[in-house]
Simulated assay, not measured.
Amino acid sequence: MLDLGRYGSREVMDLQLFNYLTKAPIMTMDYATSSQTENTAETVYARGGRGNPRRIAWHGDKETIVTVETQIFTMQHLALLAGENIVSGANEIYKSEVLTVENGGTGTKIINLSKIPVGTVDDVAVFVYKNGILGQSQTVETISNKELQLASTSTANIGDEVQVYYRWNATNTHKLSFTAKGFPPYIFMVGDTVYSDENSGEVVSAQLKYYRAKLQPNFTITSAPSGDPSTLSLVFDVFPVKINGVDTLYDMTIYEDE
């Protein structure tokens, strides 16, 4: 028999996320840096008499918010935040690169790209590139596979550097669209953690079931070459669901992991 103890918490909570209606798994998250379950309620008092002391208390507006911090994120995280699906397949990728004008023979000037551009010569932009600055625009006369041939009137000489802007078709991609109408869906969420028992010295397992949760849509991903890695904050609002006829925000179950 598992006796109740006096517990301390110093371990992160791993999460399992499920579709709210079907309970189909969405993702598992076992790499968070911290997790926090915050419970709040509002208390209103009736006061009266000398000194205006509190006489009666009313409680209401009970809320639970789960905040998870992670320095590792997935497209599934972002899809939940966006409220949209990940679409796999081919997509056009914008690219710019600095290249050297080469001798194509018979007086032609060519540029060899790293990718095959899509579109026509009007979809490729070439500029003289000197001292890190874009110079005069150059006219592309023909495209053959990865090779551009400049017009005979181009001012870029063989050996000069140019910067080329173009698009190429990547066949193996995953795309997520952040739309104006997309918002996070409701989910069923399970949290697994462990607590240390002061008296027995044993570690007990704990599972928290948040029956109806919804991500807040606000998030920030920082890109910087210094300091700590970017942290993604996932904030879940928890809503009550009737469990055995009682409006329940979440359950906590302590058990022996036999």
Rank of each mutant, 00 (worst) to 15 (best):
T64E: 13
M27N: 09
A41V: 08
A46C: 05
K23M: 07
F178D: 14
N157Q: 14
G5E: 09
K146F: 09
D3N: 09
V164C: 02
S34D: 12
S34V: 12
N169C: 11
S230P: 04
N52V: 01
I110H: 06
S144G: 07
Q136W: 05
V12A: 14
T222Y: 04
N244T: 06
A79W: 01
S96D: 12
T108P: 04
E161A: 15
A90T: 14
S223E: 08
V238D: 02
G119H: 03
V190D: 06
V194E: 08
F239N: 08
V246M: 05
D14I: 11
A57R: 13
E63Q: 15
L249R: 11
G105M: 03
G104V: 13
A82Y: 05
T64L: 13
I111P: 04
G245R: 13
L21S: 13
Q71A: 13
G104W: 01
I116A: 11
K95M: 06
N157K: 13
S226E: 09
L215Y: 12
F219V: 00
N52W: 05
I116E: 14
S154Y: 05
Q138L: 05
T74G: 03
S226W: 05
D192N: 14
T64I: 10
M27D: 07
S230E: 04
T33A: 13
G227Q: 05
G135P: 02
F73L: 09
I221C: 00
A57D: 10
S9P: 02
P185F: 06
E258V: 11
N131H: 10
L78M: 10
